[in-house]
């Protein structure tokens, strides 16, 4: 059984790292070992406790995009009943369903082999470095694209993101949503960030940074919520007390909400490079110091 202090520490860590493109699962596996916290990641309670924290994170995302989710759910019901897409809300709803299916199915089929990786901090360290590489590559691709557009355009823009060629979620095709959804499958590996890999795919698909983050958060919500709700019953005898469980989920949710607000503001002008360097550094530290 995991102690209350450790669970609250994991909650804060999960809240900060779930929505930043740095892999919360990778952090939960690597950071405690790196700072010398003595606990067993292969404990049967570890994954269900993380899943409990995911419910807090999912609640934060639902609250952050509450108006969007009302429109998305209404849109999905209307589109499902009519069998066609008539407006942007219905289109967004179907895009989210299409984008969620690959991770939902593959995650469900491979859940047992994937869980075995959760107890391997060195594997998570390698995947953290890979995650940094993915973020860096996406930004490199984006910079090259921005330079190409700047040469072709006669307009002088205050910021590259103002280029009308970069779009919002409404401009995505269903096929692109499916491809971004397939990228999200990578986040089943501890160390690969769900929001990071979908933001990277969104940037390559031509979304503005802030819209790529918004799409990543919307796409992540059903998976995070489902993972939490389906895994929590496995807590069994190792479950923390009700107070600790609710407190930890609430802490994860509050921290995740603040993190998401910060990230969305940052991405109005910022890029993913700092997160790429951070992931590479943390992964390298894990490989060097964890044996």
């Amino acid at each position: 059984m995991l102690g209350a202090g450790l669970i609250l520490f994991l909650a804060a860590l999960q809240g900060v790292t779930e929505l930043f493109p740095v892999s919360s699962l990778g952090h939960a596996v690597v950071v405690p070992r790196l700072i010398g916290l003595n606990f067993n990641e292969t404990s049967p309670a570890f994954v269900p406790v993380l899943a409990l924290l995911h419910i807090g994170t999912a609640a934060a995302l639902l609250f952050l995009y509450r108006r969007d989710w009302v429109r998305i759910i209404r849109g999905f019901i209307r589109a499902a009943v009519r069998g066609r897409i008539d407006d942007p809300d219905q289109r967004l709803a179907i895009m989210l369903v299409v984008g969620t299916i690959p991770t939902g199915i593959i995650g469900f089929l491979l859940q047992d082999p994937l869980k075995s990786l959760f107890g391997d901090p060195r594997a998570a360290s390698v995947f953290l470095i890979v995650n940094g590489g993915i973020l860096f590559a996406a930004e490199m691709f984006r910079r090259r694209d921005e330079r190409r557009r700047a040469v072709a355009s006669t307009q002088v823009l205050a910021h590259e993101e103002d280029d009308p060629g970069y779009q919002g979620i409404d401009g995505l095709s269903l096929r692109t949503a499916l491809i971004v959804g397939f990228f999200q499958v990578g986040a089943l590996l501890p160390g690969i960030s769900r929001s990071g890999i979908t933001m990277a795919a969104g940037l390559v698909a031509g979304l503005r940074h802030e819209e790529a983050a918004r799409f990543a958060f919307l796409l992540a919500t059903p998976i995070i919520l489902a993972a939490g709700l389906l895994e929590v019953p496995n807590l069994g005898a190792d479950a923390p007390t009700l107070g600790v469980g609710i407190g930890a989920a609430a802490l994860a949710g509050v921290v995740a909400y603040a993190s998401a607000r910060f990230l969305l503001r940052y991405l109005r002008l910022g890029r993913l490079d700092p997160f790429a360097y951070y992931c590479a550094a943390l992964g390298a530290a894990g490989l060097v110091f964890i044996h």
């Binding site: 499902a80 069998g83 939902g104 389906l230």
Partner: peptide, 23 residues
């Protein structure tokens, strides 16, 4: 867990069939 996942897949397949049918 399996039962819930297959229920969701059933609903999605019905919705997909509704999209695919000639209108």
């Amino acid at each position: 867990k399996h039962a819930i996942v297959f229920t969701v897949l059933t609903l999605l397949a019905v919705v997909a069939a509704n999209f695919a049918r000639p209108k």
